[in-house]
Design a protein around this nucleic acid. Structure first.
Lengths: 150, 150
DNA sequence: TATTGTTATACTCTATAACTATA
DNA sequence: TATAGTTATAGAGTATAACAATA
């Protein structure tokens, strides 16, 4: 959407409030299921990628290794993940999602995406598909791609 | 981009790292021009909307009124905004962008959007246009639209 | 000596509450 | 008494540094 002078708002300036609003919409869903946002992020990262270490998980979700510890404590206590010492390296702890964790993840995702899809109906169908494609493509780019010229 | 089970990642989960990367790419540009990110946000809000009060500005950019004070102090000291007492209500202070402020804003915006456009070339041209259209349309929605069913 | 995970500490950002000057 | 702006305080979230166990 062009400015009066033919320019557009910065992409970041458009996406930041949008992302904030989407996250705000997730919070009631997550609260209803008794899980935190970071807990949900961890379940998403572990589903399909079991038996990684805590360090690998932290890196995968872009979090500090110290930040995920309390989250893992909680998920383990709720029976949503397993966290076993690696017999081959007794310093490490291998993480995987449990059946209950997977079920919770899928239930939460269904609700979140139902709401997202409702919002997306505000877009023409063609733009909706292109938007999702573009978001996936851009979010898959490595961080260096964004700071090439800076 | 569909999952192995036919599902997609949450929209918020895709947009958050993308937005973070775009903001990270802005920081060196802003630093080179000696301005903070919030300072740039304020200049963007004031350009074309002069003579508003601080409260109105805070609301417009979704910030607390206490949060913008230090930013306005800095912008005023740099000569990028003017901040005059309202003769009709001497409690209020009327804000407007100066010529220098407008020039700085445009210079920063040109650099930021040049980088954004470079990143966007990773998308097919049709998707690129649709993505910008969709981002503008969704970011223009009122916050209530996102939490209808929650 | 290096590494995994943990705990303790400090820092940044933001929100809340209390204050002033005008109305 | 209510409001615009300011200042001071407190809270949440995150990062940094120090530590224990194992390699």
């Amino acid at each position: 959407m062009a400015d009066h002078d033919g320019h557009r708002p910065d992409l970041a300036a458009m996406l930041q409030p949008l992302t904030r609003a989407l996250i705000a919409a997730e919070l009631p869903v997550l609260a209803r299921h008794g899980i935190s946002m970071w807990g949900y992020v961890v379940l998403n990262a572990l589903d399909g990628n079991p038996a990684g270490t805590q360090g690998a998980l932290a890196q995968a979700i872009g979090a500090d290794k110290t930040r995920i510890i309390a989250i893992l404590d909680e998920l383990q206590l709720m029976g949503l993940i397993s966290r076993e010492r690696d017999p081959a390296d007794r310093r490490a702890r291998l993480l995987s999602i449990t059946r209950a964790g997977r079920e919770l993840r899928l239930a939460v995702r269904a609700e979140i995406q139902a709401n997202e899809n409702r919002v997306l109906t505000r877009l023409p169908a063609a733009d909706r598909q292109a938007f999702l494609r573009a978001a996936a493509a851009l979010s898959a780019l490595p961080a260096e791609e964004f700071t090439r010229t800076a």
